[in-house]
């Protein structure tokens, strides 16, 4: 049941076709990472009224983060990101519950961190973290909304095996890069916004528009493309053998 204050706060979205604020209010979302992608994702999910946000980040703010991580300010340097994000988003929307986790996602901590989540949203900044997130989401049978950026390029997709392929069906796991990944704020801004929109749509309708599809955004040519991919039957994460374990 929405309070009078909630009805007023959300009045412009309550008139959106298919909108279901009650469903959002009852939902719990894990935002993995609160940086360039995660900060945008968390901000839009908080503003929209997702009932419980769990913000995971073990990192602290660095001056070199501020070209893209729009939740943070220069006087935040050295402070833990997830706690700062929690404070900023609580000020934006005190009607929702926000939990800050200052820790690293590991195989050991995953069950506790993702417990009770309806969706896991990817705000990570590294490939090994994404493969771990994919594996955990598949094992715990939680939908995983994927996003990643590099230079002028961004990608997004939706993984929910066994109904859909997973990240490991799509991307060959390669040696983690040691190079500094080039990134400027607008690209994670776009991809993070798409992830937030996908999360909200999925929570309210159960629709999965990017299942089995990879959305490609190229900000240098201002192009969006959608490419198809299928399940890998021998996938180490979501293939039949992996699920039988």
């Amino acid at each position: 049941m929405l309070s009078e204050s909630e009805r007023f706060r959300y009045q412009r979205q309550l008139i959106v076709t298919d909108w279901d604020q009650e469903k959002l209010k009852c939902s719990t979302v894990l935002v993995a990472g609160t940086g360039g992608l995660g900060g945008v994702i968390a901000q839009y999910l908080a503003a929209a009224g997702v009932g419980t946000l769990r913000l995971l980040d073990d990192d602290s703010v660095d001056l070199s983060n501020l070209n893209r991580q729009i939740l943070f300010r220069t006087d935040d340097i050295g402070k833990p990101k997830s706690i700062l994000a929690c404070e900023r988003l609580a000020a934006l929307n005190p009607e929702i519950k926000i939990e800050a986790l200052v820790e690293r996602l590991t195989e050991g901590s995953a069950s506790r961190i993702a417990a009770g989540c309806d969706v896991i949203v990817d705000g990570f900044d590294n490939q090994p973290g994404r493969f771990l997130l994919n594996s955990i989401a598949s094992r715990m049978h939680i939908p995983y909304i994927y996003g990643a950026v590099d230079e002028w390029h961004g990608q997004a997709s939706f993984f929910y095996p066994p109904a859909t392929p997973c990240l490991a069906c799509l991307v060959r796991e390669t040696t983690p890069t040691t190079r500094k990944i080039p990134v400027f704020g607008a690209v994670p801004g776009v991809i993070g916004s798409l992830e937030a929109a996908m999360t909200i749509r999925y929570l309210m309708t159960g629709e999965t528009p990017l299942a089995g599809q990879l959305l490609i955004f190229q900000s240098d040519t201002m192009s969006f493309d959608v490419l198809c991919f299928e399940k890998n039957p021998t996938c180490q994460v979501c293939g039949a053998k992996a699920r039988a374990k």
């Binding site: 360039g36 994404r130 990643a148 590099d150 994670p188 490419l227």
Partner: peptide, 23 residues
């Protein structure tokens, strides 16, 4: 979606992406 060992045919379009790791 395709794999490195797959054969190509006339008029095919191959799209190749590196690991995209940032966020």
């Amino acid at each position: 979606h395709a794999n490195p060992e797959d054969d190509l045919h006339h008029a095919d379009t191959v799209s190749i992406f590196p690991p995209i790791g940032g966020g």
